[in-house]
Simulated scan of single mutants.
Amino acid sequence: MASEWSPGSSSRRTFIKQTTGLAGLTLAPMNQAEPSAPGPTLVQGATELSLRINGRVYSLRAEPRTTLLDALREYLHLTGTKKGCDHGQCGACTVHVDGERITSCLTLAIMQQGKQITTIEGLAKGDQLHPMQEAFLKHDGFQCGYCTPGQIMSAVACIREGHATSDDQCREWMSGNICRCGAYPNILAAIREVASSQ
């Protein structure tokens, strides 16, 4: 058992050593930096990036901390992907990276080099809309339209992932995409129609 400590009898450091069983150890002063192993090289300032988006390679110069969303909108002027909450909570910025849906506001552009990025602009083939885009038009799956690109990108991924086999399953797997206008029944109808046709 550690010896009894009373205020004023010793330093806080002595008290901690005694109560934690570290009495025989020497602790380094708190303000002294510990030697550490060399870390990874830090990239600072703007750097050259190369992103493959919708089958085309784009080159840009941006800070390493630039999000994929900001790279798309501010640097490459691909403004179909929307900035909603900028915290990964609303799904308006959903894109596909190597076939998987992600919120582009939560990933750095520099991390997506060498990957295939698909945005809402890349779904249609020329003048031919993607079946999901057609279904959203048919079922009025939007009102203000701000969340629609993210909803469509998530809906396409939801079907591809096999998560649109029932209304409840579809609601669950689309729950990361918020529609502030409340067009959920129409969005669900659009997704279920496309899912049933595949």
Rank of each mutant, 00 (worst) to 15 (best):
Gly145Asn: 09
Glu34Lys: 13
Asp98Tyr: 01
Val156Ala: 04
Gly145Trp: 05
Met132Ala: 08
Glu134Gln: 10
Gln143Ile: 08
Asp98Trp: 03
His96Glu: 10
Arg56Asp: 05
Val194Arg: 07
Arg56Met: 07
Gly84Pro: 04
Leu42Ser: 09
Lys83Leu: 11
Thr148Gln: 14
Leu51Glu: 08
Asp140Ile: 08
Gln151Lys: 02
Gly55Trp: 13
Gly114Lys: 05
Thr79Pro: 07
Gln133Thr: 09
Arg171Ser: 03
Ala33Arg: 15
Asp168Gln: 11
Asp168Pro: 00
Pro64Ile: 00
Pro40Val: 14
Leu106Phe: 00
Ala190Met: 04
Gly24Lys: 14
Ala183Gly: 08
Gln112Cys: 11
Lys125Gly: 05
Ser104Ile: 04
Cys181Tyr: 09
Ile110Val: 12
Asn31Pro: 00
Met174Arg: 00
Ile53Ser: 02
Met1Val: 05
Thr118Arg: 08
Ser166Val: 08
Ser6Pro: 00
Thr47His: 08
Ser9Trp: 06
Glu48Ser: 07
Ala46Thr: 03
Cys181Arg: 08
Gln143Ala: 08
Thr118Phe: 00
Ser197Trp: 06
Ser50Tyr: 00
Leu51Met: 11
Ala195Trp: 13
Ile191His: 02
Leu42Glu: 14
Met153Val: 03
Pro38Ser: 14
Pro131Gly: 13
His163Trp: 12
Ile159Phe: 08
Arg171Trp: 00
Lys17Val: 10
Glu134Asp: 14
Gly84Thr: 12
Phe136Pro: 10
Leu137Ile: 11
Pro185Ser: 05
Gly55Tyr: 11
Leu69His: 07
Lys115Arg: 13
Cys85Thr: 02
Met153Tyr: 12
Thr107Arg: 15
Arg12Gln: 07
Gln89Trp: 01
Leu22Trp: 11
Cys144Ala: 02
Ala164Pro: 05
Arg73Cys: 02
Ile110Thr: 04
Val97Asp: 01
His77Glu: 15
Pro185Lys: 12
Arg192Tyr: 14
Leu60Gln: 04
Ile117Gln: 06
Lys125Pro: 04
Asp86His: 06
Pro7Gln: 12
Leu69Lys: 03
Ala23Phe: 13
Met30Ile: 13
Ile16Trp: 02
Arg65Ile: 00
Ser196His: 12
Pro149Asp: 09
Gly84Phe: 07
Lys17Glu: 05
Arg12Thr: 11
Glu48Arg: 09
Arg171Asn: 01
Leu78Gly: 02
Ala37Pro: 01
Arg101Ala: 03
Thr26Ala: 07
Gly176Ser: 01
Pro149Leu: 10
Lys115Asp: 02
Pro35Ile: 07
Arg12Asn: 06
Ala71Asp: 10
Gly126Trp: 09
Gly182Asp: 08
Thr26Cys: 01
Ile110Cys: 05
Glu48Tyr: 00
Cys170Tyr: 01
Ile117His: 11
Ile117Pro: 00
Ile152Thr: 13
Cys90Ser: 01
Ile152Glu: 14
His163Lys: 10
